[in-house]
């Protein structure tokens, strides 16, 4: 579903997708801290492979998207991570088009960013149960919002919104439930094993300060 092929979306929507994706990608890369690179690569690889895990729904099938999880952990860096995953899927598997890559990235990355914001809000509560429940909700919302955005981009290209939205959203209810459980479980594991991995901006800034201190120290020696 998130892999719209070329030739379906109209030119104004395509251009909008390309511009917003490039801007988001540039901002994400600017925010990319060296410490976060392995984390970004692992999640990008997970996203790349997740599309191969599919579940039959009626005559068609749906696949994992994991954009909620990627958004929670990566924040703005999720935009380049998703773009790289989608580009490789298009080139190697033939999923989705190339010109439409901007729109496809937009449809997956915007819910990811919203999930990031929501999750950061929930972290203020300091209650593990609330945080994990929010992570589950992010898994659900990530897919759900993507489905709505896909239907919107089809509607903006002159397709019937109602039928497209109905088809896309209903077909993805099972995957939304699966991702709810998956994301909640993944975040619960991270919180227990490595809670620092979930600290994005603040943690990185702290760490950067630390590195500079080290380098200054070296310069003195």
């Amino acid at each position: 579903m998130a892999h719209i092929p070329d030739g379906v979306i109209s030119w104004p929507v395509l251009a909008g997708g390309i511009v917003t994706t490039l801007a988001g990608c540039a901002y994400g890369l600017k925010k990319l801290d060296p410490v976060a690179i392995p984390r970004t690569a692992v999640l990008s690889a997970t996203f790349f492979v997740a599309a191969l895990v599919h579940f039959p729904v009626g005559p068609t099938s749906v696949h994992l998207m994991l954009n909620g999880l990627i958004g929670i952990v990566l924040g703005w860096v999720a935009v380049p991570a998703i773009l790289v995953g989608l580009l490789l899927q298009a080139l190697l598997f033939g999923f989705g088009g190339i010109i439409v890559l901007g729109v496809n990235t937009f449809n997956l990355a915007v819910p990811a960013l919203l999930c990031h914001g929501l999750f950061q809000l929930s972290r203020r509560s300091q209650h593990p149960k609330i945080i994990i429940a929010t992570a589950g909700a992010c898994g659900f919302l990530g897919v759900g919002l993507t489905a709505v955005l896909v239907a919107t981009s089809l509607a903006l290209s002159g397709k019937e919104f109602a039928s497209a939205a109905q088809l896309v959203v209903f077909a993805h209810l099972p995957i939304m439930l699966i991702e709810t459980v998956f994301t909640a479980a993944a975040i619960a594991l991270l919180l227990r094993v490595k809670p620092e991995a979930l600290e994005t901006d603040q943690g990185q800034e702290l760490h950067l300060d630390h590195v500079q201190e080290d380098e200054q120290g070296k310069a003195y020696v």
Binding site: M1, H3, P5, R39, V42, A45, T46, V49, A50, A51, L52, V53, H54, P56, T60, S61, V62, H63, L64, Q89, F93, G94, F95, A186, L189, V193
Partner: peptide, 25 residues
């Protein structure tokens, strides 16, 4: 390791499903 394990599971999962590993198209 845990991240790699999750990735490995995701790679392996489609190999065990009845239908061949392809995505929605």
């Amino acid at each position: 390791l845990s991240a790699l394990f999750i990735t490995a599971c995701l790679v392996a999962a489609p190999l065990f499903t009845a239908t061949p590993a392809k995505a929605h198209k």
